[in-house]
Amino acid sequence: MKDIFKDYVLQREELLARIAQELQLDKTRLERMETAYNAVAELLKKDDHFFDDLMIEIYAQGSKRIGTTVKPINEEDFDLDTVLHIYDPYHRHTPEEIYSALVNALEKDGYYRSIMEKKNRCVRLNYKSDFHMDILPACMPNSFEREIIKIPEKGLKNWSTANPKGFSNWFLNSANTVAEPLLKRNLEVLMKAQVETEQLPEEVYLKTPLQRATQLLKRYRDIYFQGKEYGVSSIVLTTLLGQLYRAENSIFETIDNIVKRIKDNYIDAINGGYRFKVFNPMNPEEEFTDSWTSKHYDAFYSFMVDFHGKWQNLKYSFETSKEDYIKLFGEGVYKKALNGQIVAFSKASNDAFAKASSLITIGAAFTDAQGNINSKEGVKNESHHNFGGKY
């Protein structure tokens, strides 16, 4: 059986997948969110005023829909973006009418009235269970198009066009162009090595390199822009990642290559005397960077340069990259993922440090008279989870 600790590339890839898994929203929270927007849909379907006899659907858009969720840092709420899709042509209504209909229907219920917050063109429900849900009302552009939507502009006077389902499909199609991801290629070996410990479900290895890369880059975005202005939106990062992905089969190469391409394209724009722009792949007329000032551009490029510099230190060994993992993803997340990896694979390894670290982590370590760590003889060690050492 392959020893993961003797294969640096595979070990690094598996660790990155574990880190991304630690960063994403857990299944319980995702189910709670689905329950929340399904409950709103049921409430609206029972409305005897505006929504009576109208076919509607509420669905998630953004990171939840494409599998790239990332937990907020500093105990902040997760922003769940949803669409209230009204299957009726927009020309039969005004933007203000559908917005007001949503507000009025929710206000009839005491619970929703107490947690509702009116935003420019959506309604926010502030749940106490660590997330809030933004509901954007939308209509059909005509009587037969069921994917593209018309949504209110911020002033509620005009309509704009969007296609969240189409964007999600575009991103996932790009993600699935990879033929055989590195972790899938080694899936049988990885799972066999974990038979006794069962530290990680198989799903960790089944997300695509592009999905994992998006999660990791978004996490450092959140860390980098803490307390700073001109942060880069998730839609800009996600679009760039999807556009510049070239079916790389590993998380590491996906990030390494795409960030370099972003930097190169940015410099080409500067040297060519034109503005670096990011357009909606499902609507070429919509520019996601149309409101960027020079300060936004400076912040964006500085972020990319900073990330790329730290990322290069992950190329060669864990001995030299520990601090960069911590800076990129956070100490707690890194150490939890690393501890899990060592415990999961130590029994299938001949690496003495990995075996000793695993015993210490799970509280099964003894130190004998010669100072050797083992599982049977000597003084019982206290378990801990904060080693960094060799890895």
Rank of each mutant, 00 (worst) to 15 (best):
I148D: 05
I148A: 12
K150D: 08
K150H: 10
I151G: 00
P152A: 02
P152E: 01
E153V: 02
E153L: 09
K154L: 11
K154P: 12
K154W: 01
S160P: 03
S160N: 12
S160I: 07
T161L: 10
T161G: 03
N163E: 07
P164Y: 04
F167P: 05
F167T: 02
S168H: 03
S168P: 02
N169V: 09
N173K: 14
N173A: 13
N173R: 13
A175W: 01
N176K: 14
T177D: 12
A179C: 14
E180L: 14
K184A: 13
K184T: 15
L187S: 03
L187K: 09
E188F: 09
L190T: 00
L190K: 02
M191W: 03
Q194H: 07
Q194F: 00
E196W: 15
T197K: 13
Q199P: 02
V204A: 15
V204L: 15
V204R: 07
Y205V: 04
L206D: 10
K207P: 12
T208F: 04
Q211P: 11
Q211S: 13
Q211G: 05
Q215T: 04
Q215A: 10
L216Y: 01
L216A: 02
K218P: 06
Y220N: 12
I223M: 01
I223P: 03
F225A: 08
F225C: 11
G227C: 11
K228A: 04
K228R: 15
Y230M: 09
G231T: 14
S233Y: 04
V236H: 02
L237T: 05
T238E: 09
T238V: 13
L240Y: 00
L240R: 01
L240W: 00
G242P: 12
L244H: 04
L244K: 08
Y245Q: 07
Y245E: 07
Y245L: 07
R246Y: 01
N249I: 15
N249E: 15
S250C: 02
F252P: 06
E253Q: 10
T254D: 05
I262L: 11
N265R: 15
Y266Q: 12
Y266N: 13
I267P: 08
D268V: 13
D268L: 12
D268K: 15
A269P: 14
I270C: 07
G272L: 06
R275L: 13
F279I: 13
N280T: 06
N280M: 12
